[in-house]
Every structure is written in C-alpha cells, then in structure tokens.
C-alpha cells in the first residue's frame, strides 16, 4: 500500500469527469459530469484502467476518494426523498474541482 498526497480534501466539492470510456470502466455512467462531496480518503491503488489489462508492475497508483452525491442531483426524476444519497469511489484521475468541468 502506497501513501500519496491527495489532491482533494474531505469536504471538497468535486465533479466526475465526463470522458469517453472504451472497453472497461469502474466509473459508472450515472456519475459522469455529476458533482458531489468528498467524504473519505481511500488507500492509493493501481487505477482499474491499468489493472483491467493486466498492467500491474507499471500500473499507475493514485489516491482514491469516497464521493457522496445527492440522489436528486443524479436522477432528475428521483422518486425517493430529498435526504437520500449515494456514495461511490473514484480514482483521482476521474475528479476535478466542482465547476471546472463541463456539466
């Protein structure tokens, strides 16, 4: 397990990059372009973009984050309640400061 200095801090608002994905991804389509809040740090690991193709020794390590989204942000026709949330994890390469990316 490697220790890395994370670019984002707990409480930061972040937007998930809306990039084209070919063949495989661990960044769900429903999170793309969406803005949430960093709620926890996770240990650095090889990004799945490398791991999925067996690139381990030369795989890129990055910090990972738990990002919390409001369900009413993710789904405009959300049928639950305002308080509901969804958490998922993102590698640093998928995140940018909120407001910087296209939305």
């Amino acid at each position: 397990m490697k220790t890395m200095t994370p670019r984002f801090q707990v409480g930061d608002r972040v937007t998930v990059r809306d990039a084209t994905t070919m063949f495989h991804t661990r960044t769900q389509g429903f999170t793309r372009g969406q803005t949430g809040t960093v709620v926890e740090h996770r240990p650095a690991w090889i990004v799945p973009e490398d791991e999925a193709f067996g690139i381990m020794e030369n795989g890129r390590y990055t910090p990972f984050y738990v990002v919390r989204f409001k369900q009413t942000d993710l789904w405009p026709d959300y049928t639950g309640f305002e308080v509901d949330t969804l958490e998922t994890e993102c590698s640093e390469m998928w995140l940018e400061p909120a407001g910087k990316g296209k939305k």
Partner: peptide, 14 residues
C-alpha cells in the same frame, strides 16, 4: 422520509 437512504455502490477495492 426523514431517514436518509444512503446507497453504497461498491465499485473499487473497498
């Protein structure tokens, strides 16, 4: 309605 339903989409190493 006042209980937050928090869905955890387990998508990485946790």
């Amino acid at each position: 309605p006042d209980v937050e339903v928090r869905v955890h989409d387990s998508n990485q190493k946790s």
